[in-house]
Simulated scan of single mutants.
Amino acid sequence: MSAEIEATAADSGAKATERFRSDKSSALAVSADRVSRLASRAINALVETVLEEKVTYEEYNALKTWLIQVGETGEWPLFLDVWLEHAVEEVANSGRAGSKGTIEGPYYVPGSPVLESPATLPMREDEPGTPLVFQGKVTSVAGTALAGASIEIWHADDLGFYSQFAPNIPEWNLRATALTDSEGFFRIHTVQPGPYQIPTDGACGQLIEAAGWHAWRPAHLHLKIAAADHQLITTQLYFTADKHLGDDIASAVKPELVLDPQDKADGTGREVTYDFVLATAQ
C-alpha cells in the first residue's frame, strides 16, 4: 500500500479538474443583473479587505503568485470544495425536509458499479482497515419505504486515499451504488475509512501552512441517495470518535451526520445503522 503515498496535489488536482469538466455542466442561464450583483459583491469584499487590512504590494503580489499556482496545479476544485462549498450547500438545502445533506467534495466519480443489497463494495483482497457493515432504510418524509432507491457510496481507504485520485488503487475501489430491497432496506459491507489531510504539497497546502491551519478532514463516508419522484440528497457520514469532528477544514460536519458504530458480536468488525428520509421532488 506504500505506493499510495506518492499521490501529489498536482496529480489529484488535475484529475479533479478533469472530472469536473466532464461531469458538471458549465452552461447556466444567468441574467446580466445577477452576474453583476454577485461579481460586484465578491470584488467589493476583496477591495474592503485590502483597504481595512492595509494590504501591501508585497502581499498583493504574493496573492497573484499564489492564485496562478492554484490554477497551474489544478487545485481550484479542491480550494472551492474545501472553503466555499459548505456555504453553497447550506443555501441549497435550507428548509428542506428529510435527511441532512452536506458537501459533495472533489472526489466524486459517477457511474460506479450497481449492486443489489446486501452489497460488498469493490476492494482489494488485502484491503486494510476495520470491516464495517453500514445498513439502514430509505423512506419518504411520509414514512413510505422506498424500494429500489440507490445508495451511491464512495470513501477513502484506511490510509485516506481515494481510488481514481491516487496511484496504484483499482479504479472502483470502495465505490459502488447499492439498491434498496422491496422494503427499502440496504446493507453494505465495506471497511471503515481513515481520516486524511487534503493534499498539502501544492498551492492549497501553501495557504494552510502560511495561515497556521491544519489540513485534516475527519473520516467519512460519501453518499448520494436517490429515488424516483424524490429529491436526491448528497451527504457525508462521520464517526463519533474522530478528533477532527469539531475542526473539519471543510466545515462540513453536522451533528445529525455522526455515526457511532458498534463492535459486531462475532468479532468480525463493526456495524452501524443509519436511515435516510427523502423529500418529495418539487
Rank of each mutant, 00 (worst) to 15 (best):
T180E: 00
H220C: 12
G111R: 03
Q206E: 14
T139W: 00
S26K: 10
R41N: 13
A14W: 03
E116Y: 07
P128S: 05
E53T: 15
I103V: 07
T120Q: 05
E271L: 13
I151C: 04
N44S: 11
G212Y: 12
Q282W: 08
A279N: 03
G74S: 04
N44D: 15
V91Q: 12
A219D: 10
N168V: 07
L80H: 07
E152Y: 03
A279G: 06
P110V: 04
F165L: 02
V114K: 10
P113A: 07
T17K: 08
P199L: 01
L80K: 02
Q231P: 05
G246N: 15
N61D: 14
A27L: 09
S150W: 01
W154F: 07
L51M: 14
A210K: 12
R217M: 15
A203Q: 06
Q262M: 01
I249R: 06
E89T: 08
L146H: 02
V30K: 13
K243R: 01
S117W: 11
G148V: 04
E90H: 11
P199F: 08
G129P: 06
E72D: 08
P261V: 12
P195Q: 11
A87R: 11
Q206H: 08
P128F: 04
P106C: 04
E52I: 08
K137M: 12
V88Q: 00
L51H: 14
V35T: 15
K54S: 14
G194R: 02
L28V: 14
N173L: 06
Y60F: 15
L51G: 12
Q231L: 14
A10D: 00
L207M: 13
V138Y: 06
A16N: 05
G246M: 09
I188W: 03
L115S: 07
S40Y: 05
L237G: 04
V50T: 13
E271V: 13
S25L: 00
G212S: 06
R175W: 03
T102V: 05
E209M: 11
E125S: 11
G184I: 04
L146A: 03
N61K: 12
F185K: 07
D266S: 09
S22A: 15
E75N: 01
